[in-house]
Each structure stands twice: as structure tokens, then as C-alpha cells.
Write a protein that binds this DNA or RNA. Sequence first.
DNA 1: TCTATTGATTAGAGCGCTCCAATCATGTAG
DNA 2: CTACATGATTGGAGCGCTCTAATCAATAGA
Lengths: 334, 334
Amino acid sequence: MARPTMEDVAAKAGVSRALVSLVMRNAPNVSDERRTRVLCAAHELGYEPHAMARSLASRTSTVLGVMVSDLRNAFFADVVEGLDAAAEAAGFHLILNTGGRSPARERSALKSLLSFRPAGVILLSPVVPASAIEEAAAQGPVVLVSRTSRVQGVDTVNDDGEAGSALAVDHLVSLGHRRIAHLDGGVAAGAAARRRGYQQAMRRHLLHPHIVRSEHTDTAGEKAVHELLGDPPLGGLPTALLAGNDFNAVGAISALEEAGLRVPEDVSVVGYDNTSLAALKHISLTTVDQPRTEMGRLAVEALLERVRGERAEPVRHLLHPSLVVRSTTAALER
Amino acid sequence: MARPTMEDVAAKAGVSRALVSLVMRNAPNVSDERRTRVLCAAHELGYEPHAMARSLASRTSTVLGVMVSDLRNAFFADVVEGLDAAAEAAGFHLILNTGGRSPARERSALKSLLSFRPAGVILLSPVVPASAIEEAAAQGPVVLVSRTSRVQGVDTVNDDGEAGSALAVDHLVSLGHRRIAHLDGGVAAGAAARRRGYQQAMRRHLLHPHIVRSEHTDTAGEKAVHELLGDPPLGGLPTALLAGNDFNAVGAISALEEAGLRVPEDVSVVGYDNTSLAALKHISLTTVDQPRTEMGRLAVEALLERVRGERAEPVRHLLHPSLVVRSTTAALER
DNA sequence: TCTATTGATTAGAGCGCTCCAATCATGTAG
DNA sequence: CTACATGATTGGAGCGCTCTAATCAATAGA
């Protein structure tokens, strides 16, 4: 026997299908007597409304399309948690895709999401061209996370990479450091902002920026330190390092220690992302924390504001990171 | 203007709605001439079929409900990646929920998923009682990942925790170790199997198991080592440790090193899970790897076999882990 | 007494699609 | 030629629901 429908409940409760519909949406103007009768019948039959039929008939959707470029990245997994919590609280559901950082796959993933006519779409660090985003935006509200874009009518939620780097530099300067190098994340998402923030902060303190091209991996961090030690900048070896992310920082630390330099006594190191890695006592890395779950929450909030028609102008959230000071930074010994 | 419907495409192409439907499902027995005409019209209008309407009309679903107990756990994030890849390849979509390890929240999350009448449901390490799983199973196929259950008609996909521990113990024994302790994961999911596997493997080698109650965190690993050092077992301090997971192992290592013991020269340590942590050169932890993405793939496969009616008997996949030997284990020096 | 007024209830159309059965072309054998 | 396949095309019902407008009952006002 198939799952019961509204018709079955109506028959059992001896009312019309429309009344059942009203009760299921707990509309006002239904007598208590009928309401309980319908509710009982529904319960006895194990009836649950059919979300898709409801969506089709009401021409509204409770589904939010989410495309994640890479779920393996703990950052996005955390954002999705925030997304889900906020969506659930508002009675919405997530339909989720991964794009694998391939424009072609992401494009088809996006198309796939749109075929469900979601209330809106949230894209986490997409690599698709702006045109694809524009197309999606023509179908409904779009929120971009960890990606900026000037597409009309698209909201964005980003972490303020510049501010994060500034926070780190300020911290190091306050500890007396003046020769601070940056191990940069290359083309990785967000790396440009971090680099910019570093440069600006250094100039603000009237210090010379020194950037070593690197990547967001521990081996790249090691390699960068080797380069630095092999070919020190004019002013001498840096006394502090701002790594592109935590993995890079850990690599840098192990290379420093191998070279006989102590962290933080000889060199201070700051990471970025506050991954679970950084929190390990064994590593205890000073790092920049981004409010990841909060980013998810804000993304849903922005989307729902549009869905509800409460706002039409685009909003661009730039979230403030915070510095988590642990044991890899110390005052400069003179 | 609203999104175009099949009707619009039919009008534009000068054919009936039914023909458009046939073309969209690329059914046979449609003349090439009409097919291209419909396809052109659809393309010009930017028409895409409405997945929910399609689902409602065809009484079939391309949606798989997925409930994840905790997405922040990298293990599940990886499984979801596998899930998504397999689902996409088969033309299915994921609708995803998180349960936050709370039975109440999970229950409502599950209900929520079922309201979409998915083709089936996949639960990742759910904490809901068997009755809830039974209810879900009454509505359609259910696959359990990282949770065993004897519920009728439910498939399960698990990593073989016993085999993993055995692998680790065998490795240590082959290196000459005989006093091997286990830092156990307590009530964490999967910990019991790992403990069992350790005990069985030790007995098989005619060795005395020694279990230290611990948890899946680095601080717990440290604490466990302190206990071990403060109150050594009868036969003397262990020369090798099998930790409950990688975090625990890292904590154990730092406690050992603090106590002046070298890893692996004095004590070998094996982790479990092969997290990104273990792969860091700085840590380079020997650990047990579970085929996470593969687990996701198998879960979808099992589900779709049921959906397609290819199988009725329950299947219980037990995936074989493998040992990743890195630098925290070495032959016992005598 | 009759008409408004209000609140509770329901019939019926329709959301965008699929699917069955019916129809309409063709060609092919009798 | 007619009869009959065979393949291409279409009308129309219906998936499970919502929503508008209509209906009905009950009370209040004149």
C-alpha cells in the first residue's frame, strides 16, 4: 500500500481535502474540533505532507541549492554546518552538490540544483565564470561565499582576509618584530587578500614587506623556509613569519626547527584558518580564526531576506576574523 | 516573466506537450526533425525541466536523503564526497541534513528528509533508536553508514575496525614489539570494534592486551600516556602504542616526548583514521586508513540496487582498512 | 423578519510534468 | 485497393498538493 495522501486523511476525518490542507499548514480559522479530528486521522494513518507536491502547488520552494567546491576542505564543511543550522531553523532544506573545483562540473552541478527550482542558491567558493553566476541569478537569489563578484543582485559573504593579515602583523609588531615575512598562498582562494593585507599593514608600520611565493601545504611551507634561509633578504633573516594558512605554517615550523632555529624564541610563526591542527597542544599555533559557521548563517540570512522580498539591494558581508594567540609567537629577544 | 514550461516549448516548436516530454527524456521513436526542433526551441527559451514536477508526475524520485551526524568530522565530509560523486554519476541528487548527534534533532531531520519522498535514505552514524530507522525503512530503502543494525531490510556500510586494529598490531609485532598498549576511544563511534580487534590480535599473538581508557582527542592521548608512565603495567612500560585515532596519537606522542622518550626509537605509535594531520611531514604518523570515499560510493550503490529492485536481501559491507606506514613506528631495539 | 457580517468549510481549477490510450501517418503484404 | 502492421504524435487524466472563489452556518443589526 502506498503512502497515504491528503485525500485519505480527509476521508478518514470526514472532511474535505482543502480543510486538511489548512490544518497541515496550521492556518487560522479552523475550528478546534475539526483540527484535532484531522490531526488524529493524519497521525493514525502516518500521514506526512509531500514536500514536492506542496512546492509545486504553492509555487514556492523550501529548498536551498548549495554548491560546495570541495567538501573535504574543513573550512567548507564548517560553513555547510552553519548553512544547515540556519536553514533548518527557518524551515528550509539543503540540496547539496560538489563541484570539485572544475568549472565544467560546477556548471552542471549548478544546473542540476536549479532544476529543483530552489528558493535560492548558495555557492561556496565557486570557480565558474561570472556568466554562469549571472545565469543563476536570473532564476533567483544567489549568495556567493568566499568569492567576490560584481554580478548584479548577488550577495556575497567573505572573510576579511586583509583584516586577518593586519591582525597578525599588528600582533607581531606589538611583540617587537620588524622583519616579518609572508609565505604567500599563491593562487589559492583568498590568498590575494591575505597578501594585500600583509603588505598594507607592513607599510602602515613603515616596515618592508617581504613575500615568499608558496602554497597552502606543509611541504610548500618547508620549501619556502629553505629558500628564505638560503637566500636571506637584505635586512637579514626575518624574526617572524606570517604563513598563508595553518598547513603552510606547520611546514615552515618544522623546517625552521630542522635548521636549528627555535619557535618562538628565534622565530615567531602565525598561521591562518585556525584548523583543528592549530589547536593541538603539540602544535599550539598562533593563527587567524574566521567565523566559519557564522558565515554559513549569514549566507542563509541574506538569501532568505531576498526570498521574502525584504531586501533588493545587494549586500556584501565581510566578516571580521580574530587572532587566536597560542605558543608560536613571542616577544622579540634583543 | 516566469520560467518557461513545457507548454511554452511545445508552442514555440509547434508540437504537443507530450512530444516535448518525450524529447526531454530522450525517448526513442521521435523523428530527428522534431527532436531538433524541440531542442532548439527549448534552448532558445532557456527551458530546463522542473525536477519536482517530473518527480511528482512520474512517481519516481531522483533525490537521495542524507543525514550526517556531524559534518565537521572530516571522516563524514569525505564520505559525503563519495556519496555525491556516485549519486551524480547515476543521475541522483543529495538532499542533506545534519543531526548534530542529538537523537531528537536527528529524528526531525530524518522526518524532514522523508517529506521529500526520496528514492532512499542514507544515514551517516546516526544516533537515533532502531525504531526510527525502522520507520524510515518502511518508507523506502535505507542504508546505514558507520552504524550496525539488525533492522530488517536495511543495508549497512562499515569500516572493519577490528581488521584495522589487527593490521596495526600485526605491523608492530612484526617489528618485534610485544608490549603493545591500546589507548581506547571510549564510547566514540567505532571505538568498540577497534578495541575488540586489538584484543583479539594480541591474543592471537599470545600477548597480553593492555587497555588504557581514553578518548578521541589529543589531550586525552596525553593524559593516557601520563597515566601509563605513572602506573606502568606489570610487564613493564609498553614499547608500542595503538591509539584510538590520530588526534589521540598526536597527544600521546607529545606526552612521550615531554617525558624524554623518543618516537619511534623508544616507543612506536600507531594512529587511526589517516587524517590530513597524519600526513604532515612534521608528524608523519603511521596510521590506519579507511576507504572513506569508497564507503560513500558503496552506500549509494547499495541504495540504488534496492531502488532499481535488483536486490531485496540486505547487504552488509565491511570495508577493509589499510595500514599507512610512516615514521612513528620502528623495529624494537633490543 | 430580512439582510449584512463574519467565520468555517468546500468545490474545483491548476502547478509542470508523465504516461496511457488513442490517433494519425506511412509503408507493406494480401 | 483494402487490411494491417509499425512508428510518430497527441489528448487527456492525474501525481499530491495549494489557492481562489463560492457556499454554508450562525450570529448581529435594523
